[in-house]
Structure formats: structure tokens, C-alpha cells
């Protein structure tokens, strides 16, 4: 009887969860015939924080900074600022800090207005502010991701592809600054591997350098370019799979300087 049930269970499971389907065990990534999907998806900070938190609770509250946003006519900067503010919203969610998330929800709306996409974002921004007030973190997280994606979709629709790349870049930068800061405060070789992102930086660099010159004119964008170049050499694990404490400190400083430059320029 036991055998029968065992057989039944195995049969049912194998019809649902099976081994990976027939596929080549190795592919040559240099093969010129390979077709890559061009859309790059940037991880959201919470995706990275989820991994770090599995090693133990982190003090995410320390990463929240109350920075004022200053709007100007530079849409490229505004797009990066938008990505940054959304990523800071994710940090606020991780820290479950109601006030900071409510403030960031309002900042998101102001930036969306400046980018001409407030109609699309308003509902999400209100949900963020209200959800944070009620401590509904799951919903706030979802709304933040939706806000980011909604703006990206709208930019694509408006053929503002350069702004899409800058929103993504700002979002990645904000998350990386917080991650590097947490790792700097509480370094562990095991956790440092989360900064191993050479291919992702290469992609961000490609996207940034591919922008029309008018979209990256000025000192701020020279700094963006230089920082990406610098980070590409730092965010690469060594033979042990770790990134040294010294490099983590450098990453933390470089990302922090750039974030401050975006806010203050």
C-alpha cells in the first residue's frame, strides 16, 4: 500500500515538476548567430536586499536620507532623479519607515509631473503615500515597482528611450549605493558577492554611451560616465567569489558621490 502511494506521488510530481527540458548543455555565447533580446531589466533594490537579509537582519533604516529634490529643466537629470527616488522608496519599504516612504511618494509625483507623466503615475503615487501610512508594505513595494515600470512604458510609448535608460540607471545607482553602504558598515566576504555585477554595468554603460550627446551634456553626465567606468573595474569578484572590503568602500564612496551630485547639481 505504501509503495502504491509512493508511486502515485512520484507520478503526480513528475507530471508537474520535471527535469529541465531537452536543451543543449552548453551554448557558445560568442556564437554570432545567437539572438539576444535587447530589453535589459535592472534588478530592483528589494531583490538584492532579499538576498542580503537571508544572511541576517540589516539596519536598513540607517540608509534612509532625507534629501530635498530640486527640479530644473534638465530632463535627463530629472529622469535619473526619478529612478533614484523610487529606489529610495524601496529602501524605505525595507526599513518600514512610514514617513520617508510617504515623502518619497510625494517626490515621485513631483518628478513625474516634471517629466510629463503625472497622469500615469498619480494613482500609484497616492497608493504609495496611503499604503505607507497604513504600513501596508507589500502593497507599497508593488506600487513602487509599478510606478517605475509605468514611467518606463510611457517613455517608450513617447519614444523617449533616452529617458528610459536614465530612469533605469538612477534606480540601479540608488540601490547600489545603499547595498554598498550596508556592506561597508558590516562587511562580509559572503555578502560582498552581491556587488559582482560586471555585465550589468557593461550594459548600463553601453546604454548610457548610446544616448544622444544632447541627453548627456554637462559636468554631471561626465561624472556619470567616469563613475560607471570606475565601478566596472571595482564590481567584479575575485577568484574566491568575493569583493574586497577596500573595493566595497570605494564602491560606496563612488556611488554616494554620484548620488549627491545628481541631487545637488
Amino acid at each position: 500500500m505504501t509503495r502504491f502511494f509512493l508511486f502515485l506521488a512520484v507520478s503526480v510530481l513528475s507530471s508537474q515538476w520535471g527535469l529541465a527540458q531537452e536543451a543543449p548543455v552548453k551554448i557558445d555565447l560568442e556564437d554570432p548567430n545567437l539572438v539576444f533580446v535587447s530589453d535589459s531589466v535592472i534588478p530592483i533594490p528589494l531583490e538584492i536586499f532579499a538576498s542580503l537579509d537571508k544572511m541576517g537582519a540589516q539596519d536598513w533604516g540607517r540608509q534612509i536620507e532625507s534629501r530635498d529634490i530640486r527640479l530644473d529643466a534638465n530632463r535627463s537629470r530629472t529622469a535619473m532623479l526619478f529612478g533614484l527616488v523610487v529606489s529610495e522608496g524601496f529602501i524605505g519599504v525595507q526599513a518600514q519607515d512610514k514617513e520617508s516612504v510617504r515623502r518619497l511618494g510625494r517626490d515621485v509625483l513631483a518628478l513625474a509631473r516634471s517629466l510629463g507623466v503625472s497622469a500615469e503615475v498619480e494613482e500609484h503615487a497616492n497608493a504609495i503615500v496611503n499604503g505607507a501610512g497604513r504600513g501596508e508594505w507589500e502593497m507599497v513595494r508593488q506600487e513602487l515597482d509599478k510606478t517605475r515600470q509605468t514611467v518606463i512604458n510611457k517613455m517608450k510609448e513617447l519614444r523617449d528611450d533616452e529617458l528610459v535608460a536614465l530612469v533605469s540607471l538612477g534606480g540601479w545607482l540608488g540601490g547600489t549605493e545603499a547595498l554598498a553602504s550596508v556592506l561597508r558598515d558590516n562587511y562580509s566576504a559572503e555578502g560582498s558577492d552581491l556587488l559582482n555585477q560586471p555585465e550589468l554595468i557593461k550594459q548600463l554603460k553601453l546604454d548610457f554611451n548610446g544616448l544622444p550627446k544632447r541627453a548627456r551634456r554637462g559636468d554631471l553626465f561626465t561624472q556619470v560616465s567616469q563613475t560607471l567606468e570606475h565601478l566596472e573595474s571595482l564590481m567584479r569578484s575575485d577568484d574566491t567569489g568575493a569583493i574586497s572590503e577596500g573595493k566595497v568602500i570605494e564602491i560606496s564612496l563612488a556611488t554616494r558621490n554620484l548620488v549627491e551630485a545628481i541631487y545637488e547639481s
Binding site: V37, P43, I48, A50, S51, K54, Q197
Partner: peptide, 14 residues
């Protein structure tokens, strides 16, 4: 029969 590849950054422990 013609595959496509999507590049994605993934994180250990997740």
C-alpha cells in the same frame, strides 16, 4: 527551432 537569449542579473541565496 530558433532560440532567443535574455540576459539577466541574478543574486545568490535568492
Amino acid at each position: 527551432g530558433k532560440a532567443k537569449l535574455i540576459q539577466v542579473q541574478l543574486f545568490r541565496r535568492n
